[in-house]
Design a protein around this nucleic acid. Structure first.
Lengths: 219, 219
DNA sequence: GTTTAAAGTAAACAATGTTAACATAAGAAA
DNA sequence: TTTCTTATGTTAACATTGTTTACTTTAAAC
C-alpha cells in the first residue's frame, strides 16, 4: 500500500513558488500541470483543489510578477532627492535590465497571450498605481521644473515607455546579440529620447558624468 | 461509399493560403491542423504529405510574411526622390500601420515563439537584404547629407527600430485604446525621436507641413 | 467518537500534434 | 492496353495537454 502525503499543508504556495521558479528558466508555454504535479509529488488534478484552472494560477503569477516588476523598476521614480534626469536614466536602465534578467516573466506580463488576465487585474486595482502612472507623474514633475517640453504628459510617458519596451523586446526576443553592446545601445537610445524631450535652452545637470557629456551643448 | 477527392491538385498552396487568411483574423496559436483539414475537406494528417510538420508550414508562413512586410514597409526607404525626413516619417508610419493591420502576423514575425525559425530563415538569405539593412543605409545617407548626427549608424538604426517596434507592440498587445489617438502618439514619438537624432543647426526641409511645424526652431 | 468538509487520488474526456499502415489514383513503362 | 511505381490521400492509434467526475483520506468541529 502506497503511503500518500495527504494534506500537504501549503500546496497552493508551493505551486506558486514552483511556477515562478520555472518561469525564471523557461517560457510559461512549457509550464504544464504535469511539471507542477511532478515537482510537488502530487497528482495532475490536485491543483484544481487550489485553483479554478490553469489560468487562475497564471493570474496569480502575473499579479506577483507585476509586484516584482514595480518593486524593481520604479524606486528611482520616487527618489526625489536625485536629479530628475538621473531618475529617468536609472529607471530606464532598471526597466531594460528587468526584461533582460526576467525575459519569460517580462513576456508574460507585457505580451498578448494573457492580456485578458492582465487587463482584468489592472482594472480591479483601486487606482492606477502602476509603474506607468508613476512615470507620467515624473514627466509632469519634469515639465514643472522646466526641464521637459510642456506637451501632453500622457503622450510623452507613452513615448518613453514605448522606447524602453521596444529595446527590451528586441533584446529578449532574439534580435540582438546584446550582452556586449546593450549598454552602449541603451545610452544611445536614452540620449536620443531625452534630447528630443528636453525643453530648449535648459541646462541639464546630472550627477552621472555620462549624462552631462551626452546632453550639454557641444558647440 | 464516400467519394474521396484524392489528388486534390494544389493542396499545399491551399494550406498556405488558408493559414495566411486565418492569421489575418486569429492568432497563430489557434491555427490547428484540424482547422486546416476542415477548411480543405481533407483528413488531419493529409498535411504531412506536403510539410514535414506543423512548424514547416509556419516556416513558410513566416517567409511569406516577411516578404509582405518588406514590400509594404520599405518602399519609401528607397524613394530617393523624396526628402529624407519624409522618408523616415512615412516609413515609420507604414511600419506601425502594418502592425496595426496585421497584428497576428506581426507577432508571428517579431515575437519570441518562432524565433528559431526566423533566425534560420534570415541566416539562409544571401545577404542582409532585410528591412533593417535598408534602414541602416538610409541612416548613413542622412549622415552624409548632414541631417543626422554622425554616430554609429547601426546603433542609430536600432534606436529607430526599437522605437517603432515598441509603439507597435504596445498598440497590438492591448496597452492602448489606440484607434483614436495613434496618429497623435505616432507624431509625438516621431518628433521626439527625430529631434533627438538630427544634427544641430540643420534646417530640416520637408514637404509634409506637419514635419516642418514639428522640427523648425520655434524660438 | 461522529460527522463534515477540505484536500488528495484515479480514471476518463476531448483536443492537440504526430506516426504507421493502408488505399487510391495518375503517369510512366511494358 | 496493361502493369508498376509513386505521389497523395485515409484511418487508426499514440502520447500529451487541460479538465471533470467520482471516490478516498485526513483533519478538525461538534
Amino acid at each position: 500500500m502506497i503511503k500518500h502525503d495527504y494534506h500537504h499543508g501549503n500546496l497552493k504556495e508551493e505551486f506558486i513558488t514552483i511556477a515562478m521558479d520555472f518561469i525564471d528558466k523557461e517560457d510559461v508555454e512549457k509550464l504544464t500541470l504535469k511539471v507542477l504535479s511532478d515537482a510537488t509529488g502530487t497528482s495532475r488534478s490536485a491543483i484544481y483543489k487550489h485553483f479554478k484552472n490553469k489560468d487562475a494560477l497564471i493570474e496569480t503569477i502575473i499579479e506577483k510578477g507585476f509586484d516584482k516588476f514595480d518593486a524593481e523598476t520604479t524606486p528611482y521614480l520616487h527618489a526625489k532627492n536625485k536629479a530628475l534626469i538621473d531618475r529617468f536614466y536609472l529607471t530606464g536602465k532598471l526597466y531594460v535590465e528587468f526584461a533582460k534578467n526576467n525575459p519569460n516573466l517580462y513576456r508574460l506580463l507585457f505580451g498578448k497571450k494573457y492580456a485578458h488576465i492582465r487587463e482584468e487585474l489592472l482594472s480591479i486595482k483601486d487606482e492606477d498605481c502602476s509603474g506607468f502612472a508613476a512615470l507620467q507623474k515624473t514627466v509632469q514633475e519634469g515639465q514643472k521644473q522646466g526641464i521637459l517640453k510642456k506637451e501632453d504628459s500622457y503622450r510623452q510617458a507613452i513615448v518613453i515607455w514605448a522606447t524602453m519596451h521596444g529595446i527590451s523586446s528586441l533584446i529578449i526576443d532574439g534580435f540582438m546579440d546584446v550582452e556586449e553592446i546593450y549598454e552602449e545601445v541603451y545610452n544611445t537610445l536614452f540620449e536620443t529620447l531625452l534630447s528630443g524631450m528636453v525643453a530648449n535652452k535648459v541646462k541639464i545637470i546630472s550627477t552621472i558624468p555620462l549624462l552631462n557629456k551626452l546632453l550639454q551643448p557641444t558647440s
